[in-house]
């Protein structure tokens, strides 16, 4: 029940944003339509886990920090790819490398996979069956170990803090 209320409020907020005017009526319509959306897709919302409001409130500063880091990384990624594209002579060493990850939950894996795709020079291709290794395509794969380290130290810390 707690989950239905929480996700309905969230979906109500999204409904307001999609509608364009944020007011109480729209929020109520969205929140009332929420359970109809949540019900058929129960398995995606993790009903078996415990949830507490305090936990979510505690994570908000970490989420803000995560999105701040993500924003900086997106700008860096764009400048880097733009440089590669505008070089007169293509000089790249692409390749696919396996990156071990520590994240265990599905939400965390999704978050880190999307973050890797949006950050400089890397693109997630697949996750292994036991959910321990991500296969990452890198535009500059001449130093696989260094790339693994940079993903672990720079990105995974923030994802672990924000989503676990």
């Amino acid at each position: 029940m707690k989950r239905y209320i929480l996700y309905s409020m969230f979906l109500g907020l999204i409904w307001c944003f999609v509608h364009g005017t944020v007011n109480f009526n729209n929020f109520l319509i969205g929140a009332l339509l929420g359970p109809i959306v949540i019900r058929p897709f129960r398995s995606l919302y993790g009903f078996e886990n415990k949830i507490s409001y305090m936990n979510i409130v505690r994570k908000i500063p970490k989420l803000i920090r995560f999105f701040y880091v993500l924003f900086i990384e997106i700008i860096k990624a764009n400048v880097m790819v733009a440089k590669i594209i505008l070089q007169p002579k293509m000089n790249i060493k692409p390749g696919i490398i396996a990156v071990p990850i520590r994240t265990k939950t599905d939400v965390g894996i999704t978050a880190i996979a999307n973050t890797i795709t949006l950050t400089p020079g890397t693109l997630t291709i697949d996750v292994s069956d036991n959910k321990e290794v991500l296969y990452v395509h890198a535009i500059d794969a001449s130093d696989p170990q260094g790339l693994c380290d940079s993903i672990r130290d720079d990105l995974e810390e923030y994802v672990l803090e924000a989503f676990e």
Partner: peptide, 10 residues
């Protein structure tokens, strides 16, 4: 992968 590629662990 293209011929410049150096590694393919997948």
């Amino acid at each position: 992968l293209c011929k410049e590629s150096v590694i393919d662990e997948y």
